[in-house]
C-alpha cells in the first residue's frame, strides 16, 4: 500500500499539461471580455429599467391582436411569393453556376471568375443587397426577389461546387470513355452523385429564403417585414406579436414539410 501511495505522490502532476499557448489564449479572451463589456456602457440602472420596459412591452404584446388579419394575410402571401420565385429561380441558376464554379470540371479561366462572383454574392448581408436593389429598382416585391436570388446563388452555388469537387472521378472517366459529350457527362456521371446533396441545400435555402422574405420588407423590399416594421413604428405591439406568431408558425409548417421532401428524394 505504501508503495502505491508513494507512486501516486510522485505522479501528481497532470500528464496532460496545458500548453503555454492555451493559457495565453485564455488570458487574451478574458482581457477582451473586460474591455468589450466596458465599452458596452452597461450599468445596473440601465439594465433594470430595460427589464421594466421588457415587461411593459410583453404586457402590450399579449394578447396578440389578429383583428387586421387581411393586412397580415396580404403581407404573408407576398412574402411567400417572394420566397417561392426567388428560391426556384435562384436554385435553378445555382445549378449551372455551381457546375461552372467546380474546379475539377472547368478550366481555371472559367472557374476563377465565377467563384469570385459567388464570393461577392455571399459577402454582403441580404439587407444591404436589398437596400441597393430598393434604390435601383424601387420599392416593392421585385427588390426582395432580386435580393434573395443573389443570396441563394451565394449560398447554394458555393456548396454545390464543393460537392461536385468531392465526387469520385471514375464514373466521369467511364462516361467520357464512351465518347459522351459534356452535357451527358454532367447528367449521367456528375448529377447522380451530387443530386441528393443538392436537394438538401435547396430545402435549406428555401427555408432561409422564407425567413429572409419576412425581413427584407424592413428596408422596403416587400413582404411581411414592411407590415411588421410599420406596426413597430406605430407601437401596435399586439399586432407585432400576431405577425411574429404567424412567422414562427410558418417556419414550423415548412420545417415539417421539408422533412417530407427530404424523405422523398
Amino acid at each position: 500500500m505504501a508503495g502505491l501511495n508513494s507512486i501516486a505522490e510522485g505522479h501528481k502532476k497532470n500528464p496532460f499539461k496545458r500548453s503555454r499557448w492555451n493559457i495565453g489564449l485564455w488570458i487574451l479572451v478574458v482581457t477582451y471580455l473586460f474591455y468589450s463589456i466596458g465599452s458596452l456602457g452597461l450599468n445596473a440602472e440601465r439594465f433594470l429599467s430595460g427589464i421594466g420596459h421588457a415587461s411593459t412591452l410583453l404586457d402590450r404584446m399579449f394578447p396578440p391582436n389578429f383583428e387586421r388579419w387581411e393586412l397580415l394575410l396580404s403581407g404573408l402571401v407576398e412574402s411567400l411569393e417572394i420566397a417561392m420565385i426567388s428560391s426556384v429561380s435562384g436554385i435553378f441558376l445555382s445549378l449551372f453556376i455551381g457546375i461552372l464554379a467546380a474546379r475539377n470540371l472547368m478550366p481555371p479561366w472559367v472557374s476563377v471568375p465565377i467563384r469570385g462572383f459567388v464570393a461577392l454574392c455571399r459577402s454582403f448581408h441580404p439587407v444591404i443587397i436589398a437596400i441597393l436593389f430598393v434604390k435601383s429598382v424601387g420599392f416593392g416585391a421585385l427588390a426582395g426577389i432580386l435580393t434573395l436570388i443573389i443570396a441563394s446563388i451565394g449560398f447554394i452555388a458555393k456548396l454545390f461546387a464543393e460537392a461536385i469537387e468531392e465526387i469520385s472521378f471514375k464514373q466521369v472517366e467511364a462516361i467520357r470513355a464512351t465518347g459522351a459529350n459534356f452535357s451527358s457527362v454532367v447528367i449521367y456521371a456528375v448529377m447522380p452523385q451530387v443530386f441528393s446533396r443538392f436537394i438538401g441545400f435547396a430545402t435549406y435555402q428555401f427555408d432561409s429564403n422564407l425567413r429572409n422574405s419576412t425581413m427584407v420588407g424592413i428596408v422596403g423590399a416587400g413582404g411581411l417585414g414592411g407590415t411588421l416594421f410599420s406596426a413597430f413604428q406605430r407601437f401596435d405591439y399586439d399586432f407585432v406579436a400576431a405577425i411574429l406568431i404567424t412567422i414562427i408558425s410558418l417556419i414550423l409548417v415548412w420545417e415539417f414539410l421539408s422533412t417530407l421532401v427530404r424523405r422523398v428524394f
Partner: peptide
C-alpha cells in the same frame, strides 16, 4: 412558382 409569378405585384 408560376402562380407567384402571375400574382406578385411587380411594376
Amino acid at each position: 412558382f408560376l402562380f407567384s409569378l402571375r400574382s406578385v405585384e411587380v411594376i
